[in-house]
Amino acid sequence: MVHHPTPTKRQRRRTSKRVGTLLLLSLAVGFTGPGLTWSDSLPLDETVRQDISLAHTTQKREGAWEKERRALETKISRLESTQRSLQEEVDALLWANGRKEKEAARLDGEIAKASHLTEGLSPLIADEAKRATQVVTQSLPFLKNERETRLAALTDWVKAPATKQAEKLERLLELFTIETQFGHTSEAWQEEIEVEGEPITVQLLKVGRLSLYYLTLDEKGCGVFSPEKGAYEPLPANCAPHLKKAIALAQRERSAELVSLPIGRIVTP
């Protein structure tokens, strides 16, 4: 039987130190597993390069964002300026519209007053329309169709209930103006008339509103319209040359000169 000597305290302490050292080495070896070995980790220079690349990318993005921000600010400023201009135009249009509404209201008021005043013209317009009918029907029979058509239109306007008084008065004054102008002009034209019951084509000469003469186409016969008889009456043959000359003057074929024509007596009613 072999007896082993009992270890001393120093030996026991040395043994504990060795065990502790081995335990630390074992732990160190255990922490250096496949995931944390130096062979699998990135080198230091590669990490630096990645960090620098990331910084450059970030800087580029920040520059792009800054550029976009400035562009948006410029666009917003331009839109705000456009909005201010449009608002000024809207304000100006509203102001002008307000003035036009006031002017329209004023004109409506004046029209209403004028309509009220013209309502009192109805009896006067009716009387003057009758007088116009007498003027046309009892006057010399020149441009008969034209004048009767104008008179019939006036009568329709006066009788129409929807026609405003101002329009009736305007038509009435228009007819009187035209009839008045007939008294200041001399005209000549060809027309078929009836002389002593026989139709004949002649040259007619209107001298204002005083007389209406005729001259036959062979320039031998002539006559004048008699308002009393309502028919044409022959004139002496020696009047034909004077009528021929007067017709040439009315048609602007001769220069102005004095012509003797039988006017007759002017009778005032």
Rank of each mutant, 00 (worst) to 15 (best):
M1R: 10
M1E: 11
H4L: 15
T6S: 09
T8L: 04
Q11A: 07
R12M: 12
S16F: 12
V19K: 14
L24V: 10
T32R: 09
T32G: 14
G35M: 14
L36M: 08
T37G: 12
W38P: 05
D40N: 14
D40E: 13
L42W: 08
L42Q: 11
E46I: 05
T47Y: 10
R49W: 01
D51G: 13
D51M: 13
D51V: 11
L54F: 08
H56L: 13
T57F: 05
T57C: 03
E68D: 13
E68R: 13
R70S: 09
A71S: 11
T74D: 13
I76G: 01
R78Y: 05
R78F: 00
L79A: 08
Q83R: 15
Q83W: 09
R84L: 15
R99Y: 04
A104K: 15
A104R: 15
L107P: 02
G109E: 00
E110Q: 14
I111G: 07
A114C: 02
T118Y: 13
L121S: 09
P123L: 00
I125Q: 05
A126I: 04
E128V: 03
Q134C: 05
Q134A: 13
V136H: 06
T137S: 10
L140W: 03
F142T: 10
A160V: 00
A162K: 11
K164P: 03
Q165E: 15
A166N: 08
T177N: 09
I178Y: 14
S186N: 09
W189C: 09
L205C: 00
G208Y: 03
R209W: 00
L210H: 09
T216H: 07
F225P: 03
S226P: 01
K229A: 12
G230D: 04
G230R: 01
G230A: 04
A231V: 02
Y232C: 01
E233K: 06
P234S: 09
A237D: 07
A237H: 08
L243C: 01
I247G: 00
A248R: 08
L249E: 05
R252V: 03
S255K: 14
E257F: 00
V259R: 01
L261H: 04
I263S: 06
T268S: 03
P269I: 02
P269C: 01
